[in-house]
Simulated assay, not measured.
Amino acid sequence: MRLHRIGTRMFGEGRPFLSGRAHELMSSYVEDVTHLHGLPLRPGYMSTRRNSYAEMAEAMVPELGPLPAPVDVLALASAVPDADLIRSPASLLAELLPGDPFPLGVTDQGVVAPFTALKILRTYGASNCLLMVMDQQSLPYDVAGTEEMVPLRDCAAALVFTDGGAVAEGFEVRHCTEIPPERVAGLLAAELGGHTALVAGRGLAATLPNAFEHIRLAPPGLPCTGVWVALAAALPGWRGRRVAVADYDRTMRNLSICTLDTSCEAG
């Protein structure tokens, strides 16, 4: 896989929920979901503003600029459910992007979701594909889990892969399961060595290895997009380097690693 472009965007407070019949459907949905799982509904949730995944995905398309080839496969990854289910982000992107992309989505995997989506894209073997990673803070209930798992901002990161992508290549993804926290730093150092620059997710903040000369930590409050925001910021200064993007889910005890080789030239 060859990376043609990576784009990221932070979003503001967003729009109100739709009115009329759409508002009734969403109200009924969030009440059913919270009741089913025994979760208290946040008071006044349906009167708040939010950025739906569909709206964020739609806003990212023009920021990617003209794509050099039709998209074959489209993957979306997120850690939490969409705030507004009225529009499907996958269907919307399939209509907006050139070509007739096959859409797929990965969720309910926490910080692992984008890594799983990348692995699936590699399995399909498509040269021209797009990965859209999104975080969303607007939820009708409180998120349980460790601090690094809670989304505090709305953000999207898009990775465009093409045949001739010149930003990075050689994407390899590995999942290491049932890894206790005390083994994480040693495993990362053994797997990657000191010659690799590291983009570390917030799940690794307490266990960063000392073996890496160049480390960039993902910003807080972005469980899925954080490492890709950090990667986009680091790439201009890491040309010609072997880079690893990694994150650790303390709840599931899963360590995910994506390695890539950056181009010596500007992307």
Rank of each mutant, 00 (worst) to 15 (best):
14 G>M: 01
15 R>P: 01
15 R>M: 07
17 F>R: 00
26 M>I: 10
34 T>V: 05
44 G>N: 09
44 G>I: 13
45 Y>A: 04
46 M>I: 12
47 S>E: 01
55 E>W: 05
56 M>Y: 06
59 A>V: 00
60 M>C: 06
72 D>S: 14
77 A>W: 12
87 R>E: 01
90 A>G: 12
95 E>W: 04
95 E>S: 13
95 E>H: 13
99 G>F: 08
101 P>C: 09
101 P>R: 11
102 F>W: 12
106 V>E: 01
107 T>L: 02
107 T>W: 10
109 Q>Y: 12
118 L>A: 11
119 K>H: 15
121 L>C: 11
124 Y>S: 05
125 G>W: 10
127 S>K: 15
140 P>R: 11
144 A>D: 14
145 G>M: 10
147 E>C: 01
152 L>S: 03
158 A>Y: 00
161 F>I: 08
167 V>C: 14
172 E>Q: 04
190 A>H: 15
191 E>F: 00
192 L>M: 14
195 H>M: 06
196 T>H: 02
196 T>E: 03
199 V>W: 10
200 A>P: 04
210 N>A: 14
215 I>K: 02
216 R>D: 03
217 L>N: 01
221 G>Y: 12
226 G>F: 07
227 V>I: 08
228 W>G: 09
232 A>K: 08
234 A>I: 10
235 L>E: 04
237 G>H: 07
239 R>Q: 13
242 R>L: 04
247 D>E: 10
249 D>V: 06
250 R>S: 15
251 T>Q: 15
255 L>I: 10
255 L>C: 10
260 L>S: 02
261 D>A: 14
